[in-house]
Amino acid sequence: MIEQNMTKKHQPELIHTASYSVLVERTSRKKTASLKVDEGEVTIIVPKLLEQEKIDEILADKHSWIVDKLAQYQAHSPSLAREYVSGEALPYLGRNYRLKVLTGDLAPTKLMNGRITVTVPEPSTQTHYIRRALVNWYKRHADKKIREKVRRYESLVGVETGVVRTKEFKSRWGSCTPYGDLEFNWVIVMAPNRVVDYVVIHELCHLLHHDHSPQFWKEVERVMPDYKENKEWLREFGHGLCV
């Protein structure tokens, strides 16, 4: 996917309060405003032409509710391993890239000169927006890379695929249907490139054998003779893949 510059007209809006920031999403599909707090991130979705004064009134009215939701999140969420500061290492297909956090209007996240660059208005207080930008970046690249790998390996396995999607799974790396539809956990692109290949081959082979029988593993080994090494890497280190 070609990353394009975001014009000022389409930049997301941020409203800053003393204790949190609010992301404003404007849409022509809504006639009323809605508010959500998800993983410590406050978002208000409003009609496209709703006046700023009305948005401020909604936020003021819901201030106590927002603070309560944020407190609940802080109390029940595990401490994040990442600090989301410049210089932090971010894995992608077996290589570590350095995070570079810039101050400015929200802009598309880019990989340039060996650094993954994220731009937010207030980096020191907006780690959730930095994380959101990184997640979106990983999802875009996972969708592209995994589709490429499916196209590469489906002929080697000897199958035809249907729809290929990337999404977020809680406890698995991929799934398939008898119709050839495949779904992959986008987080897998944080693993080494060969491990990603293994996950793709694994799901493609399930289109031939819908279980983990000896015949299934024999097919996996035919396409990837060193699959056991990649399977073991995933078993040992896969739980640590996170943004």
Rank of each mutant, 00 (worst) to 15 (best):
V187S: 09
V243P: 02
R98N: 12
K167M: 15
H63Q: 15
E57S: 13
R131P: 05
P108F: 06
Y227M: 02
L234T: 04
K48D: 10
M224V: 10
V150Q: 03
K228V: 10
I130T: 03
K69Q: 14
M112Y: 11
S155A: 14
F184V: 05
V196G: 03
H239F: 08
N113Y: 05
I58V: 13
R147I: 03
E203Y: 04
E148D: 13
E51S: 06
S79E: 11
E57C: 06
V24P: 11
L234M: 08
H209V: 03
T27M: 09
F237Y: 15
V220N: 10
W233V: 06
K69R: 14
E13M: 03
V67H: 01
A60M: 10
G40P: 02
R172H: 12
T166N: 11
R152W: 06
R235G: 14
K167Q: 12
A81Q: 02
Y20L: 14
Y73C: 04
P178L: 02
D105L: 05
S28M: 01
L204T: 08
W186L: 02
V135I: 15
S34M: 09
G158W: 07
L156C: 03
T32Q: 08
R82S: 04
T43A: 10
L208H: 11
Y97H: 10
Y129F: 11
A75S: 04
V135K: 00
V220I: 08
S77I: 12
R235L: 15
L241E: 13
L14H: 00
L156K: 15
Q74F: 06
T17P: 03
V24A: 08
